[in-house]
């Protein structure tokens, strides 16, 4: 049986009646692919030990500065709405997550990924790959320039469309802080229809994935700007002296 958007909406509403916490439900039937891919046993709670109290170190030998500009990776200028995305990565106690690796990937302005498994019949852009990397600064800040991605269809159900998003992979100073997530754009009409976004049943938590338009990040006659701050989970290791509290760091305008 082919499921319609109305069927999925009914399931999304049913799941919302059993609110979860601030993290997505792993067992979320409206996202069909999750049905056989979520653990049924509860996770084992354990104190982190040894390597789990640390995370891999990344440095400038890993990431070149120009990897934070997704618009200059080819001979020509990519098609679409040029944007800057910037924000800060903080740990669960409000300390900046400095020198951490941020990886991003996304569809182009037409909603097409440069990936062989993406069969959406929208054009590729020869001037856009859709991959970027950067390190956070001493104050946890990151910034990259890209093209606003388009929404795209997928096969979860008939006429399923993903809201426009950028995939983010982020490391913290501890193994336990590792997170991969998606950043969305404000006011997307597809939010209420998308089972991946709706798998976070707490509306306040869902909102944490939406960037804010920020006119201070907008550059005259060049690009619009979006701000998205990212909070990781709390750390377990005793903070180092080099972990400067946020309040001691000058606000970047």
């Amino acid at each position: 049986m082919e499921l319609s958007q109305a069927d999925i909406n009914t399931e999304i509403e049913a799941a919302a009646q059993r609110p979860g916490g601030p993290q997505p439900k792993l067992d979320y039937p409206p996202y069909r692919s999750s049905i056989l891919r979520h653990p049924k046993q509860p996770a084992q709670l354990i104190d982190p030990e040894a390597v789990e109290l640390w995370a891999p170190a990344f440095g400038h030998r890993d990431v070149a500065d120009d990897e934070a500009d997704l618009t200059i990776q080819h001979a020509g200028i990519p098609i679409g709405e040029r944007i800057v995305v910037s924000g800060r990565v903080l740990d669960g106690d409000g300390r900046p997550a400095a020198n951490q690796l941020v990886e991003v990937w996304q569809a182009n302005a037409a909603g097409r990924y440069r990936h062989q498994r993406d069969q959406h019949p929208a054009p590729h852009d020869p001037n856009f790959t859709g991959v970027g990397r950067m390190l956070t600064g001493p104050d946890g800040s990151y910034r990259f320039q890209t093209i606003k991605p388009g929404p795209y269809p997928w096969r979860n159900h008939v006429n399923a469309w993903r809201p426009a998003h950028i995939h983010f992979s982020i490391f913290g100073s501890e193994f336990t802080q590792r997170v991969v997530t998606q950043m969305y754009f404000p006011g997307d009409p597809l939010f209420s229809l998308d089972p991946i976004y709706q798998s976070i049943t707490d509306p306040k938590a869902r909102d944490l994935l939406i960037a804010q338009y920020d006119h201070d990040l907008t550059t005259p006659e060049w690009s619009t700007g979006y701000r998205w701050d990212i909070v990781l989970t709390g750390t377990h290791r005793t903070p180092l002296e080099s972990d400067v509290p946020v309040s001691d760091v000058e606000e970047d305008a």
Binding site: P22, G94, V179, V180, Q182, V231
Partner: peptide, 10 residues
């Protein structure tokens, strides 16, 4: 502070 929710790698 609330930690950012995860989302699938897709």
């Amino acid at each position: 502070m609330s930690a950012v929710p995860g989302q699938t790698v897709g």
